[in-house]
Nucleic acid binder design. Structure first.
Length: 417
RNA sequence: GUGAGUGUAGCUCAAUUGGUUAGAGCACUGGACUGUGGCUCCAGGGGUUGAGGGUUCAAGUCCCUUCACUCACCCCA
């Protein structure tokens, strides 16, 4: 093949699709339990929506977006969405959803696009299932989202996960903490790795989760965000933790957990896989973004949400997967053109009654047809050849028992439908 | 974007120091059984050795480029 798929874009072939359907159905079920409604939004938006939402200096905006000028207007740059929150926030404000009902619990699923180096669990077109709740500032929603995710793991049989939570404060307390952290790091600047030296200017909080041992050791001595939270953030976070006490596994408080996108405040979390994903092991992540809706021109309502990577979830449960079984298959085996015409018409009638039916299109030996019926898992094979056409009676073979009976043509539809 | 590794049939893998027509298992198709699945046996189809170029009498094997994948960074779901 000369024409192949482009780098970082994947086909999901039959056999793998079932895993996806299983995940999507489980998600739909769980979201319904928590009274979330689905929202569908475009994959293409004005670039400015993302840069204003995620932050100009984030990697996603600076070097990972698929951005281009529309054909008829060089002024408006468009981008394939790199994540879902910005678009949902936009739709929430644009649709004036807050006017009808101030609290909205929404979810979405679909492809996102980031031009990164592909590797396991990371593609340039990848799929996310995400949730956003607008209009609630209470800590109970934060906890509700995490419980919802736990329900989803349970439904899908995903074990061996770790939930890390943190609070990164709000507009009142974070600036003070940030200044203190920067001062602390400036003093030890010589010891920082090259990446962290850069982070010190662009996003100092990110120094906290540098994986290098030298930086990590230094950060241990750095001031912790959790001891600098204002009273409101402190009690919000404590309530969230209290509500999660019965979660298994119990959440790990990680004061160094910092999210990459600018809009987060207060509660942040990451749900990681213990094994099976390599270094890209975050399956779901999210947090609170109270100022975002308003900063994008919407009403002054709070927001919380998460996104989970469908590909990563699929990798976690690709082995020993219990696929949802298809309806039983009825296979029509025929010999001779007359029988073919008769079974073709019968297939049509049975399918309209909701039966899963298949048959060959070209003449094959009965043996071959039986073999294919078996391979496809048919529970019943109907055999019709010249003899049966003559007698107007079809042979019905039950595959599991090899039991074979004759049925009058006039009764076939009723007995198989 | 940086560094390293791996590319042989649909899948898992062979192929001597560079040496004949690149093999095997599984899978697929057909037959043994003129009209009966799973087991067995037999046969068949399927390869630009990822692609392009170079060295050589001769390249799956050596060199260069490129593409894809994997791992570690960066970053994120």
């Amino acid at each position: 093949m000369n024409l192949t798929r482009i780098k970082g874009f994947a086909d999901v072939l039959p056999g793998d699709v079932e895993t996806w359907q299983r995940i999507e159905r489980a998600a739909e079920r769980v979201f319904a339990n928590y009274n979330f409604k689905e929202i569908r939004i475009p994959v293409l938006e004005k670039s400015e929506l993302f840069s204003r939402s995620l932050g100009e200096s984030t990697d996603v905006i600076e070097k990972e977006m698929y951005t281009f000028a529309d054909r008829d207007s060089k002024a408006t740059l468009l981008s394939l969405r790199p994540e879902g929150t910005a678009g949902v926030v936009r739709a929430y404000g644009e649709g004036k959803l807050h006017q009808v009902e101030p609290v909205r619990k929404l979810y979405y699923l679909g492809p996102m696009f980031r031009r990164e180096r592909p590797q396991k669990g990371r593609l340039r077109q990848f799929n996310q299932i995400g949730a956003e709740v607008f209009g609630r500032t209470d800590p109970y929603v934060d906890a509700e989202l995490l419980l919802l995710l736990r329900d989803l793991w349970e439904d899908l049989g995903v074990a061996d996960t770790v939930l890390e939570v943190n609070s990164i404060g709000c507009a009142d307390c974070r600036p003070g903490y940030r200044a203190g952290l920067v001062a602390f790091l400036e003093e030890r600047r010589a010891e920082l790795c090259a990446d962290c030296d850069r982070r010190l200017k662009t996003n100092p909080l990110r120094v906290l989760d540098c994986k290098r041992p030298s930086c990590s050791a230094m950060v241990n001595a750095a001031p912790s965000i959790l001891s600098h939270l204002c009273d409101n953030c402190r009690s919000h976070f404590d309530t969230v933790l209290g509500l999660l006490r019965d979660l298994r596994p119990e959440p790990v408080v990680n004061p160094r957990l910092v999210r990459g996108l600018d809009y987060y405040c207060r509660t942040t979390f990451e749900w990681k896989a213990g094994s099976g994903l390599g270094s890209q092991n975050t399956v779901a992540a999210g947090g609170r973004y109270d100022g975002l809706v308003q900063s994008l021109g919407g009403p002054p309502v709070a927001g919380v949400g998460f996104a989970l990577g469908v590909e990563r979830l699929a990798l976690l449960r690709s082995e020993g997967d219990t696929k949802e079984s298809d309806a039983p298959l009825l296979y029509l085996a025929w010999m001779g053109e007359e029988a073919q015409r008769w079974t073709f018409a019968l297939a049509h009638r049975l399918r309209r009654r909701g039966r899963r039916v298949d048959m060959e299109g070209e003449a094959r030996s009965l043996k071959s047809q039986m073999r294919r019926a078996d391979k496809q898992g048919a529970d019943v094979v109907l055999i019709v050849g010249p003899d049966e056409m003559e007698k107007a009676r079809a042979l019905v073979r039950r595959m599991a028992t090899k039991e074979q009976t004759e049925v009058d043509f006039s009764d076939v539809e009723e007995s198989l439908g």
